[in-house]
């Protein structure tokens, strides 16, 4: 008896298999590389040998690709990242009050009270404080991304980097390099700038109180964790499965959804890896809305539509039972 959660993000596609006690049995962290379908097929292929189709009791998706992938895999629940992250964190620690989440291209803060999400914010116009930016800077400095945090901890100087905009931050870093600062100090300055930007932008006016969870791919970076602790003067906890929390939440939500409806899973099985999946888009011109409709095909057969506001295309597909 297992629950499968899939988080299709901009940078990574994560898979989590939970057992009946909702403990993490298996987890995968794959690069999306702009091809979510391929990443999902890859993940299912890796899990295929370990689990039987019948052993999967519920499937949930989350992340920016949640809707398209839900059609492809036959998901029982399709939920946004905020809800998924909150559910996962609450599962680990029911008393959690703040969740700081920094992913590939978005960052969010979730405020909880008595185990309920009471407030949240998500970056809107700028991605300066997210994982993609760190990725790029690590590359530029010639440091593997997973060692970036360790570099920051070795810093002995305080370097202030302009963190408002990713492009200007980069210019500022180059300037500091030219001035002769050592790489660890610059990396630390970068971490501080990212945290400063996060706290003054997304977390502005939010009541941040302990226990604080820090999750998402960027939580692997000890430099950022430290910078958060210094800025907030309190301990920041990084949960064990920090990088797949969204997928854990999706799996729990799928279990809840099926328990509530009393139905059985719509999961199409692990054999999907052999199928030929493709998506294409077209602009519907039947009314002035001009929706961009996405067509999802499996082996040349249309299995779903997505993006039409009136639901005309969506309802034209009969789901095979």
């Amino acid at each position: 008896m297992y629950y499968l959660g899939i988080d299709i993000g901009s940078v990574s596609t994560d898979f989590v298999v939970l057992n009946k006690d909702l403990e993490v049995e298996d987890h995968l962290y794959l690069n999306t590389q702009g091809l979510p379908m391929k990443a999902v097929q890859e993940g299912l292929k890796l899990l295929k040998d370990k689990y039987l189709n019948e052993a999967i009791n519920a499937v949930g998706t989350t992340g920016s690709g949640r809707k398209i992938i839900a059609t492809v895999v036959g998901a029982d629940s399709v939920k946004n990242e905020i809800t998924a992250h909150a559910v996962a964190a609450l599962h680990i620690n029911p008393s959690v009050k703040t969740i700081l989440e920094i992913g590939g291209q978005d960052s969010k803060i979730i405020i909880l009270k008595d185990g309920i999400v009471t407030d949240f914010a998500m970056n809107t116009v700028c991605a300066a404080g997210t994982g993609s930016f760190l990725d790029r800077q690590a590359q530029r400095l010639g440091i593997p991304i997973n060692q970036l945090g360790d570099y920051a901890l070795k810093a002995n100087n305080v370097v202030r980097i302009a963190g408002r905009c990713a492009v200007f931050a980069e210019s500022d870093m180059i300037h500091k390099q030219q001035m002769g600062y050592d790489t660890p100090s610059i990396v630390k300055g970068l971490c501080d700038a990212l945290v400063r930007n996060y706290l003054s932008n997304i977390a502005k006016g939010k009541d941040i109180s302990a226990p604080i969870f820090f999750q998402g791919g960027v939580a692997a970076n000890k430099g950022i964790k430290n910078a958060f602790e210094e800025a907030l003067h309190t301990q920041v906890l990084v949960p064990e499965h920090y990088n797949v929390m969204g997928a854990i939440g999706a799996a729990i939500l799928a279990k809840e959804a099926l328990e509530r409806s009393g139905g059985t899973t719509k999961f199409k099985g692990f054999d999907l890896e052999a199928a030929h999946l493709s998506t294409r888009g077209f602009e519907c011109s039947d009314c002035s809305n001009q929706c961009e409709v996405i067509v999802i095909e499996e082996n040349g057969v249309i299995i779903g539509y997505y993006g039409d506001r009136c639901g005309k295309w969506l309802h034209s597909v009969k789901m095979p039972s």
Binding site: S64, K79, N80, E81, I82, T83, D114, G115, I116, V117, T118, F120, M122, T124, V125
Partner: peptide, 28 residues
């Protein structure tokens, strides 16, 4: 806040997260 630069997907995600939050608040 909307303008010609607003991404629809991000908009929908925020509305969805908000309604989820309301539902969970109430259920509790």
């Amino acid at each position: 806040i909307v303008d010609e630069m607003t991404g629809e997907e991000g908009f929908i995600t925020r509305v969805e997260a908000f309604t989820d939050m309301l539902e969970r608040r109430r259920e509790k």
